[in-house]
Simulated scan of single mutants.
Amino acid sequence: MNDVHTAEPRGSVRLAYVLDPPVTTELREGIAELWADVVNAGGAVGFVPPVTPEDTRPQLRKHLIGMAEGTTRLLVGTAERGRPVATAFFALNTHRLMRHWVWLQTVMVHPDRQGGGAGRELMAAAEAAATAIDPDITGIRLTCRGGLGLERFYAACGYREVGRVPAAIKLGDGELRDDVTMWLPLG
């Protein structure tokens, strides 16, 4: 477990960003609840609202299996009593020609924390965590759902758009969004 970064995005409650926290029942349940809260507030993290924590658990389980196998790392931002209010999962590349960069997945900040800089703080902590994972990592790649302004947010955090697949994400009948790939060079 590594303390990566602390931030005070809104109010007087500090967020502590930790890489590879112990995976407890409380952490698993907290992330499942966070995921549902983010989706239900309009967040683009793999689901369409409405969802419950139970709906998010199968996807969370995939991340946890990757963590157990050593191919996924978790960065979590916690608030009072260790409650998770921000996450980012790193998927490590196993292909020998691509081990020098990582995927950033399931990037979330609780709706109550949005709009006060917590997202930018999470992205800064993710950049620091990538270097902590391996100093030879030269970049972070992520994808986001088009049409929500996420590209502008990630660009403001230093990422640049490097690819776009039109209409690759189907939210419902007749509602298609682009799948946008963003890249942050490190070092």
Rank of each mutant, 00 (worst) to 15 (best):
R57W: 04
N40C: 04
L15I: 03
L19D: 03
G66T: 04
A36Y: 08
G70P: 06
A156Q: 07
E121W: 00
A155W: 07
I169H: 06
A167P: 06
R152T: 12
W183G: 05
L97Q: 13
R120Y: 03
V13F: 07
L171R: 10
R73M: 07
V102M: 11
D136Y: 11
E127A: 11
D55P: 05
L176I: 03
A68D: 15
E33L: 09
Q105G: 10
E54C: 02
V165P: 02
P9M: 02
A124S: 12
H100A: 09
L122E: 10
V162N: 08
D179V: 05
A128K: 07
A86F: 02
V180R: 08
F47W: 14
P53H: 08
T87G: 04
V102S: 08
R57S: 01
R96P: 12
Y159V: 04
P50V: 09
R57L: 06
D178L: 03
T138G: 13
G139Y: 11
V162Y: 10
G77K: 03
L148E: 15
R81A: 15
P166R: 13
V165H: 11
W35E: 05
A125F: 01
G149L: 01
L150P: 00
E80V: 13
T24E: 08
G66N: 01
A129Y: 01
T56C: 13
P21F: 10
G42M: 07
L75R: 01
R164Y: 01
W101M: 09
R177N: 07
L122D: 09
L148H: 15
G116L: 11
R96T: 14
V38Y: 02
P9H: 02
P53N: 09
V180T: 08
L74W: 12
N93I: 07
L64W: 11
L122H: 09
P22H: 06
I31T: 03
